[in-house]
Computed example of a mutant assay.
Amino acid sequence: MSEAGERHASWLELFFDLVVVVAVAQMAHRLAHPTWADVALFVLLYYAVWSVWTTLTLYSNVLADRTRVRSMLIGMFGIAVMAASGHSWGAPLGLAAVAGFGLIASLWWLTLQYGVSAVPGAPERGLRAYVALPAHFAMTAGIIATAAGLGVVATRPAEHLHGGVGWVLGGGLAVYYAASTVLGLALGAERRWIWGWAVPSVVASLAVAAVSGLVAGWTVVVLLLAVALWRVRYRPRAGSSPSAPSAPSAPSAAPA
């Protein structure tokens, strides 16, 4: 088999495909009670999304590891804008859309850069299952809660978030960051990351959730994006790496 045939999809390509699936599902809502105008608009929008999707897929297949992340992210953002074209756009929705996309892209970047644990340089092979599995459950649940909260903000971006929506949105991120912090502690992550990035991101997300009922929804998303960008901004010191959890040493042989 050729080298091209053996190549597997990257995290970037998988994330791109996920964006396309969500975008098409959003556009398909037009067909719930369709008119001919709705069908025509769906076909037009889907053709635009399909064109971007196939073009960037071919681009990433040809360039492989040399694919430019910025180009792919711009394509994803364009697809997201087309999927949301059925809404009445204004400044609040535009700000919420840009910040929401940036927030999801930041979480994706943390996973792409550092692995499922989102811990810089984490040697995940030494992680015990009783720590890894609950943490993975918490992180994925946190992302789902965040996505659900973003969906509510998209419907009324200028309104305050009441009824616990702000806690679902900010609390979901706090759970994600907290689980990552626990994994960092278990993996012996750098203390500078633990106390300067990991723990503050948990506290900041909870603080945003606490004030979410006092500010507009788009403001909440922007504040949470700022927290996520703080996590993304972290750069490990040269030569520093987490120490893997030490395996129990074998008992020494008894003297003859």
Rank of each mutant, 00 (worst) to 15 (best):
R7P: 01
W11R: 10
F15Q: 09
F16K: 03
V19W: 01
V21N: 02
Q26C: 14
H29Q: 13
R30E: 06
L31P: 08
P34I: 05
A37T: 14
L41C: 07
Y47G: 15
W53H: 15
L58D: 06
Y59L: 14
Y59A: 01
V62R: 13
V62K: 09
R66C: 06
R66Q: 05
T67A: 12
V69F: 07
S71E: 07
M72W: 08
L73T: 03
I74P: 07
G75P: 01
G78A: 14
I79A: 03
A80M: 12
V81N: 03
A84Q: 12
S85N: 14
G86L: 08
G90R: 11
A91H: 05
L93G: 02
G94N: 04
L95F: 05
A96E: 04
A97S: 12
A97R: 13
A97D: 08
A99R: 01
A99M: 04
G102A: 06
S106A: 15
W108R: 12
T111Y: 11
T111R: 14
T111L: 11
Y114A: 11
Y114E: 06
Y114N: 12
V116Y: 04
S117N: 02
S117I: 00
V119W: 00
P120N: 02
G121Y: 02
P123R: 05
E124A: 04
E124Y: 01
G126L: 01
L127F: 00
R128I: 15
R128K: 13
Y130V: 15
V131Y: 14
A135Q: 03
H136F: 02
A138S: 11
M139Y: 06
M139E: 11
A141E: 04
I143G: 07
A145P: 05
T146N: 05
A147H: 02
G149Y: 10
V152R: 07
A158D: 09
E159Y: 03
G163I: 09
G164S: 02
G164A: 07
V165S: 08
V165M: 12
G166R: 00
V168R: 07
V168K: 08
G171H: 02
G171C: 05
G172Q: 00
G172V: 00
V175P: 08
A178V: 13
V182I: 15
L183H: 05
L185S: 11
A186M: 11
A186K: 10
R191N: 03
W193T: 00
V199P: 05
P200S: 03
V203M: 09
V203I: 12
L206T: 03
V208P: 13
V208H: 04
V211G: 08
S212R: 06
A216P: 00
A216L: 01
G217Y: 04
W218I: 01
T219W: 11
A228Q: 11
A228Y: 10
L229K: 12
W230S: 09
R231V: 03
R233P: 04
R233V: 08
R235D: 03
P236M: 00
P236N: 02
A238R: 06
G239V: 02
S240E: 08
P242N: 10
P242M: 01
P245K: 00
P245F: 00
S246I: 07
S249L: 10
S249I: 07
P251D: 04
S252T: 12
A253Y: 14
